[in-house]
Design a binder for these strands. Structure first.
Lengths: 230, 230
DNA sequence: AATCTGCGGGCTGGATCCAATAACACGGCG
DNA sequence: CGCCGTGTTATTGGATCCAGCCCGCAGATT
């Protein structure tokens, strides 16, 4: 059985249903910061904006709710989920834990093609950083990490990690503007890839843990500062 | 606080929206094995059975899909998700990893009331075991584990772990009939609680890991055996 | 005889319509 | 003058209706 073949490069005919497309779009807009935490999403308004009925919007809401990006109350509608610093802390600890496991299992399985693909993403990531293209940086950042984890062949874990990353990503994006930790993060990305090329599991995992912890600490303190002035 | 309400079609305290109630009911039916893996769920049939329109059913499907219990294809409907042995393996490794962390953080926070509550659940669990009430045992088993993790105050992690447990629970239930590992599991539950009472983190975590690994190995080999004859 | 093709039934996806509820504002009363 | 009750309105939840897609079946063609 060729169980490991994740269909990464198949075209996968855009058999995407409208609710899914809507969910993607709305998720991106939430990550962009266009919809801020606490802001309420009105079905009718979005339906009109996307020129469809309210029903696909409702189904998209269900997906976003399952992803933890919005919270809905009966007869009260949907609001963008807030994220207390405490919760961010927990999510980053989850990332450290789960992504370490993924990387550890991935490195022995990495082919040269895998590494080249990661390299390619990293190049784009660096470019986005230089151009200060925040949104592009955000999605490429996750794309780079993801590309390192895919060879682990752990789809369930990867899906969970992806959910966690999406939940925190919008705050990361906000922070990109004001923080210098990203300068370091850039270099760490490059170093991380080199460790992977060298198949140095120990060093790679250690660096990854520190990489995520730094980002988490930076984000948490930022959130705490924000919550004080609010 | 017994969550056994079985959707009494009238207005039974509906702080819970209809789609959620439906999702609960359908989830339970899937876990019970009433709907088997591969079986397709028809919106119209379920709508008629629950005496409502298809729309709440559709929204319930979204929730179940997000939980990984069903998979849906556009214009082709929903089928109950299967679980290859490989996937079960991964999910159990996730359990070992995440539940260890939870228990480790929970034990120092446990109050006497927490421990008594767990004791209470354990009593019911033992009773269900003696009476061979599979479904009740299944939900109480998770309830017991959950009660041990709640004091960790990690809602995100707990939610993820709950999802993982729900995904594997139906196979565990099927297996309860044919396996003897549950005899051991029963004793381990009791021992686990005692370690918690003694605040012996080391021993408790070690036992928990073995407890989950045993269950996982047993389930995986059972799934592999099943896949061969199929 | 086997395969391809056109057609129809059944089901899902999306739109529209109606009911129910919660926020809000106005006016009455203490 | 302020608080509470009621009516109004905006928005969500649920039902019904219509269109489009899958799949199976039957018939024709090679």
């Amino acid at each position: 059985m060729k169980s490991g073949m994740g269909l990464t490069k198949s075209h996968s005919l855009k058999r995407q249903s409208l609710p899914e497309a809507l969910a993607d779009s709305l998720r991106e807009r939430i990550l962009n910061g266009e919809f801020k935490p606490g802001e309420s999403l009105v079905q009718e308004a979005l339906a009109e904006e996307y020129e469809c009925s309210r029903m696909p919007v409702r189904e998209a809401f269900r997906q976003l709710e399952a992803a933890g990006l919005i919270v809905t109350k009966v007869h009260k509608g949907a609001v963008v989920a807030a994220m207390p610093a405490e919760q961010a802390q927990e999510l980053y600890e989850l990332r450290v834990n789960l992504e370490s496991v993924l990387l550890e299992h991935a490195i022995p399985n990495m082919t040269d093609a895998d590494l080249d693909a990661s390299e390619q993403v990293l190049r784009e990531l660096e470019k986005a950083y230089e151009e200060r293209d925040i949104n592009r940086w955000g999605s490429l950042n996750w794309e780079f990490h993801r590309s390192l984890y895919v060879p682990a062949n752990r789809t369930q874990t990867l899906a969970i990690v992806q959910g966690v990353n999406l939940q925190v990503e919008r705050y990361v994006r906000l922070q990109l503007l004001i923080s210098e930790t990203f300068e370091a993060a850039q270099k760490e990305h490059r170093a991380l890839l080199e460790y992977c090329r060298a198949r140095n599991v120990e060093a790679a995992v250690a660096l990854l843990k520190q990489h995520i912890r730094d980002a988490g600490d930076s984000l948490v303190s930022s959130l705490e500062a924000r919550s004080v002035d609010a």
